[in-house]
Amino acid sequence: MIRHVRFLGSPKPGEGRIWVIAGPFLWFMIFFVIPFVVVAKISLSTAAVSIPPYVPLVGWGEDGTLNIALHFGNYHFLLTDPEYVIAYLSSLRNAAVTSLVTLLIGYPVAYAIATTKETLRGPLLMLVIMPFWTSFLIRVYAWIGILKPNGLINNFLMSLGLINHPLDILNNQFSVYVGMVYAYLPFMILPLYSCLEKMDHSLLEAANDLGARPIRAFVSITLPLSLPGIIAGSLLVFIPAVGEYIIPTLLGGADTLTIGTVLWNEFFGNRDWPVASTVAVALIVLLVGPLMLLQHFQSKGERS
């Protein structure tokens, strides 16, 4: 029966491949690439009270001429309005701090898992991945209960008598960092682990044998060899963290400005789709570099 399934069955191997590739290729062209073009297009428009709420770029004049109105004002606005500049800078800072802290926590964890007994590695790795299977939103929400003035941490510390007044650890920069590090930690541990696990441990033994102290062997052997994992992990955390919306909204204070919250407010609050599109385009431009770097490292890892 399956004999007749010959979608690949052209005389020369390879000729049928184009049809296999075509399906997913078209899907991503239509639903991933073209949308960016649409966003770029709308970012050059202005808001209007209409459905949809923006002025069409291309229109027909009353005398039948074709009018194309490109409006670059949104970009100018973005670069000069301090609110946006602050939002971009604080998003970049959040993402950078998150990458650094997840690296500092994730590296020892990944290293510990990679060097433990082989039978323990799988279960430990699963423990790291498991939270990823449960709801992101709920996991972030859980931190409200832990950090708020009469939350678990403050209640615990006050009951021990260590503090008299609740610590102010929710709705500020600190709680945003905690939430971001918490949510993105698995993204750092996994690439680090897969890099460290592949490493030949006889190299370390050789280094020790040649007289290197463990710290020295780590710095001169393990660390450089795990650099691809460090870079991949950092990018996997940094890129989505720049555009993070849920964490700053739930755990940040009223003054927390990030690209995510600004875009969301322009879009849903002000219904200014062109400005929201401009914010999105600027974010994409910001992430092109890191994205290409990641792609470069991933294709390199694929080849080796």
Binding site: F32, V38, V242, L263, L283, L291, Q298
Partner: peptide
């Protein structure tokens, strides 16, 4: 692979506009 790391907010707005 890009959607693995692409901020959701970008994918959201671009798909909606599409």
């Amino acid at each position: 692979m890009a959607p693995l790391v692409m901020p959701e907010i970008i994918m959201g707005i671009s798909l909606l506009l599409l």
